Computed example of a mutant assay.
Amino acid sequence: MRKLFLLFIVLFNYTLVKAQEQFVVYFDSNKHEVNNIENRKLQDWISLNKDSKIVAINGFTDEDGSNGFNDTLAKKRVDFIFNQIKDKLKIREDFKTRSFGENFNQSTDKSLNRKVTIYYILLKDLAREDEILGIKKEVVIQPKKEIKYPEKLIFDNPNGTTSEYVLDREFMKKVGEAQVGEKLKMDNLNFRINTFIVNPESRGKMFELLLVLQKNPNLKVEIHGHLCCQPIDRVDLSTQRAKAIYNFLVNNDIDKTRLSYKGFGSTIPIYALPEKDETQRAANRRVEILIVSN
């Protein structure tokens, strides 16, 4: 019981320090109503603090009388003050009154022990209310709902025909669930030789990325273009290829603020130049997606 009481006093002192503002009302011996002088002080304080907010009211007594009597008296003093202010000042919704009876550090002057202390926050500090009281808001992170992608997609081609494309749903899921800073390669996205025109059989890859962006409105990406073979990208082809993907997405109503693009030429190869075979050249000749926000 003693340990519990000491903990309670520590918590009280913490509130005392953090709340910053306090007002004290004193009582006559064995009284739970204030005298005329203290009542006038209380009413004046109420008038001056219409915009303040009460966060705690603590009641105390001197050591005269039994513990039970003093605990009851302290509670009555708290109730009296609370009834005086409840319709005049703002009070926290989770407001709780506290009464300490004689169980606190007593002053040698008994008159200073018969009191109620009101803790409050001024208008200028209300925006910091939880911070002042040491209250940390619980952040609830909602789990991201799993997105169901279709197995196939039918889209129109520039020549007027249509194509049926089997979607790589595993790749789409990876992009949609990727962490910020993660890079993902768009496999099988190929261009005509020495151009930024996407091969017809690779157009489905662009639709995969488009569909992921449509289904994940918070997703932002940066499109990276890379080349093989030549150490110098003289015509900036890697940037043009990255921009081609960017333009496709913008033309299909993806907001520009969610997209950006860069070309790196052959400066970040997977395999050292010159490559040994077509497998290595194909690996270096790639488009990657950098997750900027998700």
Rank of each mutant, 00 (worst) to 15 (best):
Lys148Ser: 15
Tyr119Leu: 08
Asn83Glu: 14
Lys88Val: 02
Glu146His: 11
Gln43Val: 12
Lys145Gln: 01
Val139Cys: 06
Glu151Trp: 12
Asn35His: 08
Tyr119Cys: 04
Lys148Gln: 14
Asn35Phe: 06
Val24Thr: 15
Lys124Met: 08
Lys144Ser: 04
Ile57Asn: 10
Ile81Arg: 07
Asn36Gln: 13
His32Arg: 01
Glu21Thr: 13
Asn39Arg: 05
Ser66Thr: 15
Gly134Gln: 02
Ala74Tyr: 06
Leu73Ala: 02
Asn113Gly: 08
Asn103Lys: 01
Lys31Phe: 11
Leu126Gly: 07
Val78Trp: 14
Phe23Leu: 11
Ile81Lys: 07
Lys53Tyr: 03
Ala19Ser: 15
Arg92Ala: 11
Ile135Asp: 01
Asp130Gln: 07
Thr15Lys: 05
Val140Ala: 06
Gly68Val: 02
Glu131Trp: 10
Leu16Thr: 06
Ile37Tyr: 09
Gly65Arg: 00
Gln43Thr: 14
Phe104Ser: 12
Lys115His: 05
Phe69Arg: 15
Ile91Cys: 07
Phe82Tyr: 15
Leu126Asp: 08
Ile141His: 07
Val24Ala: 00
Gln106Val: 05
Val25Thr: 11
Asn83Asp: 14
Asp44Tyr: 07
Tyr14Thr: 02
Thr61Trp: 03
Lys76Tyr: 12
Leu133Trp: 09
Asn113Arg: 10
Arg98His: 04
Leu126Cys: 08
Asp44Thr: 10
Phe82Met: 09
Lys115Ile: 00
Phe104Lys: 15
Ile135Ser: 01
Ile85Leu: 15
Ile91Asn: 06
Asp130Val: 00
Glu151Gln: 12
Lys90Gln: 13
Ile81Tyr: 08
Ile91Thr: 10
Lys110Glu: 00
Gly59Cys: 08
Ile54Gly: 10
Asn103Leu: 13
Val139Arg: 07
Lys90Val: 01
Leu73Trp: 02
Asp125Gly: 07
Ile57Ser: 11
Asn70Trp: 09
Lys145Ile: 00
Glu138Val: 12
Ile132Leu: 14
Lys144Pro: 00
Asn39Ala: 12
Lys75Asp: 06
Gly65Pro: 11
Leu112Cys: 03
Ile147Pro: 00
Ile57Arg: 01
Lys50Ile: 10
Lys137His: 10
Tyr14Leu: 11
Thr72Glu: 12
Asp109Pro: 00
Thr97Leu: 02
Asp79Ile: 12
Val25Asp: 01
Asn103Gly: 03
Arg40Tyr: 07
Glu138Arg: 05
Ile121Gly: 04
Ile37His: 08
Phe27Glu: 10
Lys18Pro: 01
Trp45Ala: 06
Arg92Val: 06
